[in-house]
């Protein structure tokens, strides 16, 4: 008997056997994404509220003058990316929790991903166009 005849089951590492067996397959990534964006949004939201108050009642030209500043533009891009990612992850959990049947759940998830994705991109394009 040589080494070659060893069972393939024994050749698999413990990690290889455990990988991919979680219920959601990528739960940790989701969890981390939600937390990291939450962290990022703490200062960004404070800045956003301050900016929203400053911008209230301003004319379009004033808004453009404000957004063209590189620091403001960078913060706006960061805000849009963190906000829409955080929102997508949050809505995903809500849909997964309350819609039990497989098919409507998949439809809702697809619609939600499409809408939040497009809204996020629209915001991103707008912010970049304002900045340049």
């Amino acid at each position: 008997m040589t080494e070659k005849s060893a069972s393939p089951a024994i050749m698999r590492s413990m990690l290889g056997r455990a990988r991919g067996l979680g219920s959601a397959r990528s739960g940790l990534h989701h969890w981390w994404g939600q937390r990291l964006t939450a962290f990022a949004l703490v200062p960004l939201v404070l800045w956003f509220i301050y900016s929203a108050i400053r911008l209230s009642g301003m004319k379009r030209g004033d808004v453009i003058n404000w957004a063209v500043d590189p620091v403001v533009g960078t913060l706006l891009v960061a805000l849009v990316l963190a906000l829409f990612h955080h929102m997508r992850l949050g809505l995903q959990v809500v849909i997964e929790d309350y819609i039990h049947d497989e098919r409507p759940r998949l439809v809702w998830l697809l619609v939600m991903n499409g809408v939040t994705g497009l809204l996020g991109l629209a915001a991103l394009v707008a912010v970049i166009k304002l900045a340049i």
């Binding site: 957004a67 929102m87 949050g90 809505l91 629209a122 394009v125 707008a126 912010v127 166009k129 304002l130």
Partner: peptide
């Protein structure tokens, strides 16, 4: 609710452009 609120934010940004 805040997710729906982003509609207003997007509307504002797109309109400003």
């Amino acid at each position: 609710a805040l997710s729906f609120g982003t509609l207003l934010l997007v509307w504002f940004l797109v309109a400003a452009v």
